[in-house]
Amino acid sequence: MAIVDIEGVRKVYHRDSQEITVLDGINLRVPEGEFVALMGPSGSGKTTLLNLIAGIDRPTSGRVMVAGTDLSLLSEGALASWRSHNVGFIFQFYNLIPVLTAVENVELPLLLVRMSKAQRRERALTALRVVGLADRALHYPRQLSGGQEQRVAIARAIVTDPKVLVADEPTGDLDARSAQEILELMETLNKQFRKTIVMVTHDPRAAERAHVQRHLDKGVLTA
């Protein structure tokens, strides 16, 4: 069964009177438990496609079904709520909140779920244990290395047990060794925890970890 089912998606931006087509007739099916790498040159539309899958952007036309929900039918508020339950985000620059500790950052998505403070803390610590950073729970992002920050971000992405993880250049800001560790962690999440992962990357070594590589060029899936 496809957890991501995209049909005939177009995305057009308007700059002044100019019309820029970023995605042009995309069809994509990602089965549950798949690890997909989206590749392509800059400006090819990979991040835009990822944003549509993640529900933080809407297509100009076409249908985006994720985890059984047609995202185009959801209101702004419903879409926000849907994201909090169904999608985990991994960003290139980690995007941790600098004034919150590692465990508080991981707890953030759980604030949108009905649970006690103690339960929230316990789940956040469990997520940190999964990424191997339980001993850094009370550290602030500035006290962590880049690789550690990205692992905290991954813990934040998985803490609500979402169906889909979207990763935008997750190793783009890391040294080779840290990048390796992050990719291994993502593989573990995919294999052991059956997380569907859609990852945008420029890095061929990162893409090799994925089961499937899809290439975009000028807004069209070429392979």
Binding site: A80, S84, N95, R156
Partner: peptide, 14 residues
């Protein structure tokens, strides 16, 4: 700004 974008992406409402 990026912090706000992140919070919104995580599901925090406007």
């Amino acid at each position: 700004t990026r912090e706000i974008g992140t919070l919104r992406a995580l599901g925090f409402s406007r």
